[in-house]
Design a protein around this nucleic acid. Structure first.
Lengths: 192, 192
DNA sequence: CACTGCATGTAATTTGTTACATGATTCA
DNA sequence: TGAATCATGTAACAAATTACATGCAGTG
């Protein structure tokens, strides 16, 4: 199946943990899968409709004000099938590294700024993951999934720490570059 | 400018280092920006045409068999402008972590396999970056860009090493999960 | 009663990939 | 001369985002 099915996997997966509405799905996906996955509104509703058509999910009655979707047995099987398929790598697109690659055009100072910002973002991610970890520990409802969810949190932490370490290296290197540039102007005159 | 312009940046940037053909652009981008950027054929030619229309690049004469594009002064200015714009983060989509998150559905053994594969891929990336580093040092033509390019290589290395470290942690955790699962079957009977 | 948040959905647009069509040049 | 590689481009398709339209329910 060359189809993407990626959104289906995320949605069926979320519903396998608990039934919820389309709106709640978006929130859940943003809050708990956010650091490695994203799904937009315009994607969620059509996919839900498609999944319902195929009998993978059904609207559960009871709650009148919102439509709660729950996964069916067929859906669970489909989810397992989807999860077993090889993960297709998304093409990389790192705007920061693109800018640094052509840093000679941008200038060392501007690059420094970019790296500093990305370092701060990584610190933020790290803090967010710490709370996610605490939340996970405090919620006994997630018991069977917790060890697996922990793996994804740990992945985020490793990656954020690596980003911070790299940023520190990069900042040092950029400082050196700037110092060299200055030492090439013996009179100390301010060009630019 | 909400437009993507991302492809324009990559193409102008590559041409700022040296003039080349559309075909060569794709190869260059794949080989040197590959670990953090991707650009497809169907993107490169239309973008080149657009850039030419805007006077950012021009076809340089001389070589008859292929169209060599070179960046113009207008193009250089545009490139600096583009590089100065904030890098728009691409929505994250990590198929491996998505699968692990719902690992309870997939089973510890299958998860282990996935992590192992991703560890191998990270090792491969690390090896590729080592050669890229060596190539860079051996090419004096890249002198002004080398320190910046090194930053991107270093970023890739940090990230790959983090992926490997995490994989080792994750494998240990998964082994424990499997061991627990076995110890929960005192009689040694095979459920499922 | 107006505002905010929950909720559902559609349409337009952007973005990017893949596959295809085509042809020149090089080398065995 | 036939295969591989370099080269340029287009068309069809796929995926996803954004903005828009709409309405209800609770609350100050």
């Amino acid at each position: 199946m060359p189809r993407s099915d990626q959104s289906q996997t995320a949605i069926l997966g979320a519903l396998s943990i608990m039934p919820m509405s389309g709106y709640a799905l978006r929130e859940r996906i943003r809050d708990t899968l956010g650091h490695f996955w994203s799904e937009s509104f315009g994607q969620i509703y059509p996919t839900l409709a498609e999944l319902e058509r195929q009998g993978m999910v059904r609207r559960s009655l009871g709650d009148s004000r919102s439509t709660t979707f729950e996964i069916t047995d067929v859906g669970i099987n489909r989810l397992r099938e989807l999860l077993a398929e090889p993960a297709q790598a998304s093409r990389p697109r790192n705007g920061l590294l693109l800018r640094l690659f052509f840093g000679a055009q941008l200038g060392a100072g501007r690059c420094r700024q970019l790296v500093l910002e990305s370092r701060e973002q990584a610190e933020g991610r790290l803090a967010g993951l710490a709370t996610a970890r605490a939340d996970l520990m405090g919620d006994p409802g997630l018991a069977p999934d917790a060890p697996y969810i922990l793996l994804t949190i740990s992945a985020g932490e490793h990656s954020a720490r690596a980003a911070i370490d790299w940023a520190d290296d990069a900042l040092a290197a950029l400082d050196e570059l700037e110092a060299e540039a200055v030492s090439n102007i013996p009179s100390g005159g301010d060009t630019e």
